[in-house]
Write a protein that binds this DNA or RNA. Structure first.
Lengths: 188, 188
DNA sequence: GCCCAATCTAGGCATTGACAAGTTTGCGTA
DNA sequence: TACGCAAACTTGTCAATGCCTAGATTGGGC
């Protein structure tokens, strides 16, 4: 019987992270309570603090994990358009991570782990933009990158905010996004 | 001397809204406290509740106001590209409104005033998309609209999240966005 | 001039985040 | 194997907050 909880949880850090992701997924970061997460994990109310220091620490850890996952997802994609699709897929598979990643006022933005993961993801984003600048008659690579990122990020954000339900009319978001890039990046 | 506050504030509703917008502008909705707003307005801690019911009510009022302002801003613009520029301008001039408008988990999404303002803004958005579908060889108007909205929304969101500081390198965001649309909507 | 409803105050309760101090446990080391 | 120490967790506490209820004040309409 494991009902008799041991003094040591085993992997409380992961348990709290997972529970937090659940809560954020359907209530947003605002619905998050450290004490509630502790209850869910079956530990005392102050236990999570030992792993994350405080609320901002927990959210920072989530953001860092998210940037890592995003970097991995982008790295798998061969070229720019597919990278955009991966971006959209990422926001659907990891909506909680995605939300927190782009809520800087909730994070400790100078956290080393966060910065490292963020940099890694940024490199993957810029790598994709490079492709575009070449195919797209040598325009400013930075500008093209911003365009592509804006498009993917806007689509992802609106999607998570349930703002595209009517226009999408039940179609698969990734498929629609593919059409979108086809519409805009006609040259490629 | 007005230092002797009257029992009635005069325009507490507006005062609380304004103070809330200030707080949200630089701390996000998470940093918002009704009691703090009451203190700033010099009233008792429960006074704001009479105007907004609760936290969600206040944020809903802000979102509704935001959609109204956005609808007005979009209505002024003659054609699609300029409408995108207005969208970006709006997010810079009313960052607090913008943030709250797209944080549905903080709002009472069935509030009549919110729905009305939201609908009005939606019409303005769709009106712009119609223009595009015509100029853009008759493609699905819905898809083109989603593309334009995604681009503007993504740019705006990344801008507010301070994610474009390096790529923009101090350039005026609106100007950059104009270039962006020029790059993507080559046909027009 | 009076009454009523809108506006604001005062008090209270449950919940939360953060902190401090103490307890238990596992693990490396001698 | 025994020891000691640091990591992991608990318990208790405090100030702050959201929200509720009941009561006080005020101004405008009849």
């Amino acid at each position: 019987m494991t009902s008799q909880r041991a003094y040591h949880h085993g992997d409380l850090r992961r348990a709290v992270l997972t529970a937090a992701l659940d809560v954020i997924r359907d209530s947003g970061p605002a619905g998050l309570s450290l004490r509630d997460l502790a209850r869910r994990a079956g530990v005392s109310h102050a236990a999570p603090a030992h792993h994350f220091k405080d609320r901002a620490g927990l959210l920072t850890a989530i953001a860092a994990e998210g940037y890592g996952l995003l970097a991995d997802a982008l790295a798998e994609a061969p070229e720019l358009r597919e990278r955009g699709v991966r971006y959209v897929r990422f926001c659907r598979e990891h909506p909680a991570h995605f939300q927190v990643m782009f809520a800087p006022e909730l994070l400790r933005t100078d956290d080393p782990e966060l910065l490292a993961a963020r940099t890694r993801a940024g490199e993957q984003l810029r790598a994709g933009a490079g492709d575009l600048a070449v195919s797209e008659r040598g325009e400013d690579a930075g500008l093209a990158g911003v365009a592509a990122w804006s498009l993917a990020h806007g689509f992802a954000t609106l999607l998570l905010g349930r703002n595209l339900e009517e226009p999408l009319a039940g179609r698969d978001p990734e498929e629609v996004f593919r059409d979108l890039t086809g519409l805009l990046f006609q040259g490629s």
